[in-house]
């Protein structure tokens, strides 16, 4: 697809969509969203880029192999589950830290957050892999 308008639009849309994906991810714990949706949005943004510029350019933008993204996402999710084991709790138990934010309610950060981040990476990586490979091979 060699539409100039599409290319230009997407070039500007890409950072916005990625930002939106991060927003979706962060709010996911309290509002609709989360790792799945955010990962899909991130992947969708790069998919659009792939449609416009081809998989080769998109891979350059991503700069790492999607397989690495997937692997590290899985590993992150796994490790976030293993941390409570070190503390003598069952696998995947939530371990929470309160991060005080001035003039606001403290922000809770815990292992489920990292778990969700792992989900984010995996979903994004997998979807991108689908898109890249379908684009390249079919």
């Amino acid at each position: 697809m060699n539409s100039f308008i599409l290319r230009v639009t997407i070039r500007y849309l890409l950072p916005l969509l990625l930002l939106f994906s991060i927003y979706t991810f962060l709010r996911g714990h309290n509002e609709p969203g989360g790792g799945f949706a955010a990962g899909l949005i991130a992947a969708a943004s790069l998919s659009l880029y792939t449609i416009a510029y081809g998989a080769k350019r998109a891979r350059q933008v991503l700069s790492i192999d999607p397989r690495f993204l997937i692997g590290s996402g899985l590993l992150l999710a796994l490790i976030s589950g293993l941390i409570p084991i070190l503390m003598g709790k069952p696998f995947l138990s939530g371990v929470w830290l309160k991060i005080p934010i001035p003039r606001n309610t403290p922000f809770d950060i815990g292992t489920p957050f990292f778990f969700d981040l792992g989900v984010f990476f995996v979903v994004a990586g997998v979807t991108l892999m689908f898109v890249f490979i379908f684009e390249e091979e079919i």
Binding site: R67, F68, G71, L74, L75, L78, G81, P90, F91
Partner: peptide, 23 residues
């Protein structure tokens, strides 16, 4: 309560991931 129960799931997962990462 013993986390050994989850080992038969996590060990292959870990090695699966490691194999995946060492593509």
């Amino acid at each position: 309560m013993t986390n050994l129960l989850v080992a038969p799931i996590l060990i292959p997962m870990l090695f699966g991931i490691l194999c995946l990462l060492s593509f």
